[in-house]
């Protein structure tokens, strides 16, 4: 295990706006009041991506970029990409985010998850020179909007998952990170993690059912 994998930059959030889930003190997590939900949905990454999609808003993009681009680059470097290639790919990943903003479905994924999938596909393309077979899309038409309650619930589940990961014992956390960032072992990654993936799955399933219904 390379040493730098366990080093965390604790100062990284200082200049960021306060809507990142990592910024919230743990005790606010338990209070899921309506005000809390409304306030957050006004400000979160989902809303910024929407502004990128609807208004082609460059300031919204810059905020998303400042938060996510350094994370995408770290992911690509951990997955074995050289720094120069990681820089180039990160810029392409973020440009893809702009170009595909209309395809993002906030009822089924958080912005981090969506960016993770774009970065992963770019990594396969750049590093392995392989094609990536993708499932058929089940996107909302450009005119349709996902149910706001679904979007808020999805965000809450995503926050819970982030919290659950940070609560994991270090050893288990490293195992999961190894599975996601290179150094694969199929038998190890199949281990039980105790993460609330079941709930996330139910949320996504619900969103898919509604989508299917809407497309009929």
């Amino acid at each position: 295990m390379p040493k730098d994998m366990i080093i965390r930059d604790v100062d990284e959030h200082v200049d960021l706006p306060s809507y990142g889930s990592t910024m919230r003190p743990p005790d606010t997590r338990k209070k899921k009041t309506m005000t809390n939900m409304v306030e957050r949905s006004k400000d979160d990454w989902t809303a910024l991506v929407r502004r990128i999609h609807i208004d082609k808003d460059r300031r919204a993009f810059a905020s998303v970029f400042r938060h996510f681009a350094p994370r995408v680059k770290a992911f690509l470097m951990k997955s074995g990409t050289s720094e120069a290639l990681a820089e180039e790919c990160t810029q392409e990943v973020m440009a893809t985010l702009w170009q595909k903003a209309h395809l993002f479905d906030p009822a089924r994924a958080s912005v981090s998850t969506w960016i993770y999938t774009i970065a992963r596909n770019k990594m396969i393309d750049a590093l392995r020179k392989q094609k990536r077979p993708e499932p058929e899309d089940l996107t909302w038409g450009p005119e349709e909007e996902p149910d706001q309650a679904d979007v808020v619930m999805m965000q809450q589940e995503s926050d819970r998952l982030v919290q659950a990961i940070s609560d994991l014992p270090e050893k288990q956390k490293l195992l999961i990170e190894r599975a996601y960032f290179g150094e694969l072992s199929h038998s190890e990654i199949a281990e039980e993690t105790g993460l609330p993936l079941g709930t996330i799955k139910s949320r996504i399933r619900l969103a898919l059912d509604r989508l299917r219904h809407a497309m009929k």
């Binding site: 930059d9 680059k73 770290a74 993770y116 999938t117 982030v162 993936l197």
Partner: peptide, 14 residues
Amino acid sequence: ALGGALLDEEVADL
């Protein structure tokens, strides 16, 4: 979603 949650863990300078 697990990959997305892990994305939050580390940063690299651009």
